[in-house]
């Protein structure tokens, strides 16, 4: 009983419920929603797999975003960094029709990740060193990032014919699970490791709650801020590889478009507050999956893609309202009144 009570009050409660409701809706209204089957080539197939697969990039971005938001900051450049990363990778591989890469695949991957990290260093410098407000600081790269990606690809959409490139966004031959899911899983492991086995989590939260006191306690505030933006850049770089591979091309204008907003939403859905402080990795992951489930559900019940954002907004508004302190307070008062009435009767 105590366990149950603990659970209902835990921060994971809400995002989990939201997800559960969505899944229930699907179970009732969408045929064969939960069926997972194996295709001829041995790959797994089905809606749940599809959701996790498509949520992978979002999960990765949201992980980086969680740390950033926990320090009291925000990184709205991640969508653009996805485009930069994708462009870098495609540029390195080249668009040769014969499928011969210009540079070895591994070099291209490292270059793309480096592009993400460099973007992170840029953001980190502005926020940590020059103390520019995070929203403004990352806005710079958000607006210029796609331009940079254009420059990299010379304004063209480079299409890559090198087959292994498609493995990242698809399946590695002989592996049942989509590669993106594996990458997302590894990133989750990395983040859980950082959270549990290092004191990074303590430092991040401490900086997010009270930077002055943190400094007095010896926490290297600047270094912590730097670290979270670099990590966010790295996450965006990784997501860029997946997004680029999905369409096998560098599309500077559309790769990762609006993904920063979904990432921020995933983090807040997960219970981490925008003012910084306590963060919830588990919540973030569930938040990201919820957003993707919502999208998939809408498609499944035939909502056209131009109406999708509106419906998404309504659902999210609902969830965020239920989560808000004010609402919780109203609910508490209501409960209190009920119990008082019961006591009087």
């Amino acid at each position: 009983m105590d366990k149950l009570k603990q659970f209902t009050q835990s921060s994971l409660m809400l995002p989990l419920c939201a997800l559960a409701v969505l899944l229930l809706f699907n179970a009732i209204f969408v045929d064969d929603f939960f069926t997972i089957s194996m295709m001829e080539n041995g790959n797994l197939y089905g809606r749940p797999i599809d959701i996790l697969y498509r949520a992978s990039s979002l999960i990765i971005l949201a992980l980086g975003m969680t740390f950033v938001i926990a320090t009291g900051g925000i990184d709205i450049s991640v969508g653009a960094v996805v485009a930069i990363s994708a462009a870098t990778c495609c540029l390195m591989l080249g668009g040769d029709i014969s499928g011969v890469p210009e540079h070895p695949f591994i070099v291209a991957i490292i270059a793309a990740l480096c592009a993400g990290i460099i973007s992170g260093i840029w953001n980190g410098t502005l926020v940590a060193k020059f103390k520019i407000q995070a929203m403004v600081a990352t806005l710079i790269l958000m607006t210029s990032g796609r331009g940079i990606a254009q420059l990299l690809t010379d304004g063209q959409i480079i299409t890559v014919y090198y087959t292994p490139f498609s493995y990242i966004g698809g399946n590695i031959p002989g592996v049942m699970v989509p590669t993106a899911m594996i990458i997302a899983f590894l990133m989750v492991c990395l983040v859980v490791f950082l959270d549990r086995k290092t004191s990074l989590g303590l430092m991040i939260q401490s900086v997010g709650i009270n930077p002055t006191a943190s400094r007095y306690a010896g926490v290297k505030v600047t270094a912590v801020l730097f670290a979270v933006y670099i990590f966010s850049g790295f996450c965006a770089g990784t997501a860029g590889l997946i997004e680029g591979s999905l369409i096998r091309a560098a599309d500077a204008n559309n790769a990762g478009l609006n993904m920063e907003m979904d990432a921020i939403l995933a983090v807040t859905l997960g219970g981490t507050l925008m003012v910084g402080g306590r963060y919830y990795i588990g919540g973030t992951i569930i938040g990201a999956i919820t957003i993707q489930t919502l999208t998939t559900t809408m498609y499944a019940v035939g909502v056209s893609s131009d109406r999708l954002p509106a419906i998404k907004a309504i659902v999210i508004l609902l969830i965020i309202t239920i989560q808000s302190e004010r609402f919780k307070e109203l609910y508490r008062n209501w409960r209190l009144k009920k119990s008082k009435e019961a006591a009087n009767a």
Binding site: S199, L202, M203, I209, A217, G218, V219
Partner: peptide, 28 residues
């Protein structure tokens, strides 16, 4: 202003300076 980290627990507040000194990877 310079002492407490309000939203952290008593435990976390106590170990904070020590942990900062030990560095990130020497997690207690």
């Amino acid at each position: 202003l310079a002492g407490i980290i309000g939203d952290l627990s008593v435990r976390e507040n106590i170990i904070l300076a020590m942990q900062a000194k030990d560095g990130m990877f020497k997690h207690m």
